[in-house]
Design a protein around this nucleic acid. Sequence first.
DNA 1: TCGATTTTGTTCTCACGTTCACAAAATCCT
DNA 2: AGGATTTTGTGAACGTGAGAACAAAATCGA
Lengths: 247, 247
Amino acid sequence: MVTDSRNRRAAQNADLRPSRGTPEATVARLPVYLRALTALAEQGVTTASSEQLATAAGVNSAKLRKDLSYLGSYGTRGVGYDVEYLRYQISREIGLTQDWSVVIVGIGNLGQALANYAGFTTRGFRIAALVDADPDRVGDRIGPHTIKDMADLERLIDRHEVSIGVITTPASEAQGVADRLVGAGVTSILNFAPSVLTVPAGVQVRKVDLSIELQILAYHEQRKANLDGAEMPPGLAAPEPAKEAAS
Amino acid sequence: MVTDSRNRRAAQNADLRPSRGTPEATVARLPVYLRALTALAEQGVTTASSEQLATAAGVNSAKLRKDLSYLGSYGTRGVGYDVEYLRYQISREIGLTQDWSVVIVGIGNLGQALANYAGFTTRGFRIAALVDADPDRVGDRIGPHTIKDMADLERLIDRHEVSIGVITTPASEAQGVADRLVGAGVTSILNFAPSVLTVPAGVQVRKVDLSIELQILAYHEQRKANLDGAEMPPGLAAPEPAKEAAS
DNA sequence: TCGATTTTGTTCTCACGTTCACAAAATCCT
DNA sequence: AGGATTTTGTGAACGTGAGAACAAAATCGA
């Protein structure tokens, strides 16, 4: 049955759930604002205008104001934002006023780096366990943590009420690990393995891919190089498609 | 001269520079397609439909087709895409048919992890140098590389024609390092330090921030938790703004 | 040869995100 | 007190991106 496509922009949910819709793009910037506020607080600044804040966060001030307006009216016209107060409000919005337990799966170079990473143990997150499949590594200590056996994954997740999993295994293992994490009750995954994860609806996955970032930079490098040298007219760049596939 | 009546959305720049504008969102997905194609090629698949490819890349097929159409018409209707041919075309578009020299600055845990990271040394990228400011670390070997002194940064960049710099220093050092990289001719930076970089126009910066990713996950976790438990009516969530700033 | 089938390339529409611009609110100064 | 000044919060315009839908091109089978 086709829902008649005529209620074009009608029935905006603007009536049903107005205030609880913070755009994704905004959510992604809130941590940046939080960091900027923390830096200002450490400098002893108690009040900041949207202009100051925007500069510190590397965005433009209109965007910052609009972003903050989704959380509520926490500024004072003619004055600016109270640094500590806004800091608390953003922390609360993100959910950093409570602690989140994190498990890191795959303690290779990257996993170790993350376990030691200062920003990781910032207030709000607690490393509940480091897990690896290699028996030789189990028992090794990384800072204050001991590497646990992969077999205990489900038990550890349950005992420490882990809701966030970080995958730093090889790509070939990532999907299997994700399945076990989800099966054990994890509902958010941060994936560093270069592989596409399939998870049930309701499970959040974010992906960090180092080689993709590099490739995006390479693309822009190449564009710059082409512009500098011979600016070739568009449409002539492609040579005749030889199209001899390796058979 | 404007033809009067009907050009509402007319005067699209579709006439001036049509072919050379690949959207950023598309560029960011090309590496994903490339990886999917490589995986298919390794399985011996020589031809793939947009549907297959899209599934492998974790996107929907209409988006994939539209993305590929920016590069040109490299598919065959009724058949699909030749895997090897498309792989080459995307590689060329991204700029992976040439080699890019990369310098990594700051060889702490993360820097070491990156230096060893397999995806990093994928075809297209070459680690030209590892650099650290700590004299104790200079001379240490990481795989096939030797850590060089920070003082030699400019010389190394020049000698190896480095165009891409990776910053894995503490946040406090990041801007200074960026300045030196740019001064020495680097035009693309991948920044892992949690700090906002200011660079001249024309220099590309991409940022990878682990704690931000975690915080975004936390936000969604909290939303899920709030929905499960007591769905509080919007507008009542905020307690009275106590607003006692630390004076 | 010609129709049936497959699958691409592209158009159109809608949703989302960004930026501008300005009224509303708060403070400051005379 | 009241006008000038500062700065927020937001409405509106604009631009980019996503997805549905379909015509055009290629193959296949009779």
